[in-house]
Write a protein that binds this DNA or RNA. Structure first.
Lengths: 225, 225, 225, 225
DNA sequence: CATGAATGAGCTTTCATTCAT
DNA sequence: TATGAATGAAAGCTCATTCAT
């Protein structure tokens, strides 16, 4: 193999990129180190020059994804004059994977994330994201209470539960979405479930009926047709 | 090895028993078929006589566990003159793993189930249980609506969400519980979270404040001290 | 590869035989498991069916060699009417590798055993042999004391030292022997060193001058010419 | 890493120092080049600038150790008016590792040298030391013969055998010494074996009874208590 | 029904050494 | 002199599954 020298960080990210794609599509356990290095075009030794083990690579990956998500969230929420409900809806809409424009990408993403081969990776990313994002969300909940639009006795602990619900919705959506092509009648069910989760979050937070949007109707229509 | 003849089902259940214990304690992927047959005291050939593959064994196991849980639930709910809230609380209390009497057993169970090595098995059992138990719960929700104590527009879909919440509480509990020995101050947090989940379920269902009990206070005290 | 079924012990010994030959000729560390299985004509899995690890194979091998040596010694010494000196000389002569008839075999054996690639195996075999054979030798020493031909205050500990000397002689012999072809004048040195070791053993044991023979002169001549 | 320029020999010795420590504590085969360069704080390239290969480093190390030992011996024996027995005892006492003051250091040294991971290094150092020190010892033996206190027909070859015995004693000592803490009763055995080796050397050289001391009783007591 | 020897592709990891900079 | 990214052959080992008996 021709020797190609690169900057440390660049090479490291190349490996992380390749691993992310492969882990998403095949799962962590089902992805041999060999596949990763082939994809990057490096040798075994180079891989282990950057990561002590395959598992450590998974951790690095989870860390990177979490940081990206968080940076995205923080940037999005950095608008002082937004009210709590707007911020929350922004958060939901922003983190919703469906904002992506086309079906194929979404299906790929769904298969990637909500796949039994990927439970470990998902768990790691989820745990880290929840830990890091909970304070952000807690701040929004407090703001909502101050604004008089939320009403809950558990502003600091509630965020974890909200994440659970969102994850739950994500899984349910991922379960039904791929069936739409063959069973267009399921479209109604998706909408119903969306409304159920929105209703749940509203009740949870004691927010006004119809205030919470897990995604704009327009965005949803764009995807599920 | 001496040849031992046994009734087909008995032998099959012996294998399932051994596998269950090993999968719980080490995880599915981390348990080689060899360990299972050693534990049971049978040969390779015998194992593959009863199960086509290791994965098929996992499925059988998930099915068996689900059936047990379900039988338990159905038996428990087979009391026509119980009101919906009583039934729901019975369901929560019954499925709560903490009803077990002593700390050690609970810690073992927690480590068994809420362990990253066991994500796949947990997922399979969860999915099956939710699918099978949702109709049961839906019936209770409908009963509650009829009785005028519940108020929701999604009586048929809500049960899945309720299971999610319960699982979520289980995970949170499993996370904090083992720390109690060293940090008794976390006891307050467990109680707070319990109350949060109860509050959430009440709000979801539109049930009266204080009506839902994820477990009696007495039972909880018995365990967390 | 065609599946060839064999009895457990037979196959195990086939593997030990192959390993012994390879370890002797190349050394333990320098012999990959792959070479062993190729030589035997079995698969990786079969190898690990019989031995948990490569190191465990080495231990088994050392054990087998030791047992063979010991069985040989015990059989040889099982003559009640032999006096101590005769027994000891028998032991030396018997264990002397040079009793083998021809040069090539001896050179091969020498290279096999007294080779820096083989230090670990040699050490393991030595340690085991010494531990097992010391009591045998101690008994002879005691017999000699009783017969009035030996005189030492350390009859029980001396055997280990005797083995050391024999090993030492073996190494020295192995060092000089291969040079004889090119430097026939070294023949005298070998004889001198042989006499030195004999003299040393006699002095240790307080045995009569000229009583100890590490090998008959005739046998030696036969080999070194 | 900042580029650090040092005198060639100084840097080379730094590498040798690090390697010596690591080889002693982990063994040659078990010490990767990476560990050495990390310890020294240099790069891969620098290492290979000073040593062509890892094996060549081992040889350099063995050479250095041998030279140190030899220099020590020569300095010690550079006293014209000492008689042969005194010189020999000085040699034994001087090379005995137990002259070190405290248990911990000795145990560390024992573990370092008499460890199966270190057979190769030990062999190399031994071989070199024996080759270099034998003439020194032969001179002492000749002196002893002249003085009428030694009596042997093999003054020139005997030294190698003496080294073997000393090594043998060293190994035996290393075997028993670490057990003393738990089994104080082994102390008597150590003393007995010491006496056996002294007796052997005396008989060997034809030296007067009680003349040879592998170490002063006082020094021994100081260590084994 | 039961045995257990046999398979072999596949895994992760190691590490002495090279070489462009 | 010095750096450290890159190499890649080779290692030991795992384990679900097969099949002759």
């Amino acid at each position: 193999m021709a020797r190609v020298l690169k900057e440390y960080d660049q090479r490291k990210n190349e490996i992380l990129d390749a691993a992310q794609e492969l882990f998403y599509s095949r799962g962590y356990e089902q992805t041999p180190v060999n596949s990763i290095i082939e994809k990057v075009g490096i040798s075994k030794g180079t891989f282990y020059h950057y990561f002590q083990s395959k598992e450590q690579l998974l951790d690095s990956l989870a860390e990177r994804v979490t940081n990206q998500v968080l940076a995205h969230l923080e940037k999005m929420l950095d608008k002082p004059n937004l009210d709590a409900i707007a911020k929350l809806n922004l958060m939901f809409a922003g983190s919703a994977s469906w904002k992506a424009a086309n079906r194929e990408v979404i299906i790929a993403l769904m298969n990637a994330m909500y796949n039994d081969n990927n439970l470990l990776m998902r768990k790691k990313i989820n745990t880290r994201t929840i830990a890091a994002a909970s304070p952000l969300m807690a701040r929004i909940v407090h703001q909502g209470i101050t604004e008089g639009v939320f009403n809950t006795s558990f502003p600091d602990d509630i965020s974890e539960m909200l994440f659970q619900l969102m994850t739950g919705f994500g899984e349910k959506f991922a379960e039904i979405f791929p069936t739409l092509e063959e069973h267009p009648e399921n479209k109604a069910q998706i909408i119903k479930i969306l409304e159920m989760y929105q209703d749940a979050i509203e009740r949870f937070l004691g927010a006004p009926r119809g205030s919470i949007k897990l995604g704009s109707r327009a965005a949803l229509e764009k995807i599920i047709g």
